[in-house]
Design a protein around this nucleic acid. Structure first.
Lengths: 118, 118
DNA sequence: TCCATATTTCCAATATCGTGGAAATATGGA
DNA sequence: TCCATATTTCCACGATATTGGAAATATGGA
């Protein structure tokens, strides 16, 4: 992950509403959640929610797919793992693999890969 | 780590100059680095550097100690580990320990603790 | 085609951030 | 005490972020 990508991801998450949205999507897993349902859960006006979803999308932290009239937003686990890897890249005298950074792919526990990010 | 602490840490790191400063201090390890040397390395005006060091300090990401006329800034590894733990807290259907989040304490490799953050 | 629903875009107002020159403060040494 | 060095505080400017009402757009169904 490049520095500018890391900054974009950090800035996107450094905001209460967006952190709430992202964590909700992380919990929702790979099924994702329609925008309307996110707004309902977090009690957000549609324009406000749309703005924040766009920020998260531009930062690469979420994607979406259309299903009928709904747009289903999904957390981008690879981006989160990349951010964790970037933050720990300079730890441990440069031997990031020594940190054993965990990864999450959003699916069932049996699918979770162990070991350092590539 | 509480939500507001996480947001403060994310916001502090979501800025090019501060990310540079923090990573420099992470590399410097527990010895830290005097403010003047940080400014020299990153070519920053003293007022600008001071402002950013303050932001990092308020976010709990760095501390400092005085040594003569110099203030030695040091990365706060616990805060970084707390942030990583917070970000992955909602992964894996709530079983964060399954992610095996790595930790770094800034000292030699032999001191690195393995396993999930408490 | 017409309507209801889901979501986005447009817009303006307010608030906060990042920058760096200049002055102030703290420390140590002569 | 006086000076040099290290760093911070003060200040003001321009840039960027957050908010939400209102209007626009897209989709699906009757």
């Amino acid at each position: 992950m490049e520095k500018l990508d890391a900054i974009a991801a950090l800035a996107a998450l450094a905001q209460g509403t967006r952190l709430d949205v992202f964590r909700l999507l992380v919990q929702a897993g790979t099924d994702g959640m329609p925008a309307g349902q996110i707004g309902e859960r977090l009690d957000l006006p549609s324009a406000t929610l749309s703005f924040h979803l766009n920020q998260l999308r531009h930062a690469g932290l979420v994607t979406f797919r259309r299903e009928g009239r709904s747009l289903i937003y999904v957390a981008e686990y690879a981006a989160m793992n990349g951010l964790l890897a970037y933050l720990t890249e300079n730890c441990c005298q440069g031997d990031a693999s020594a940190c054993g950074i965990g990864v999450c792919d959003g699916s069932a526990l049996i699918n979770i890969k162990k070991g350092p990010v590539q």
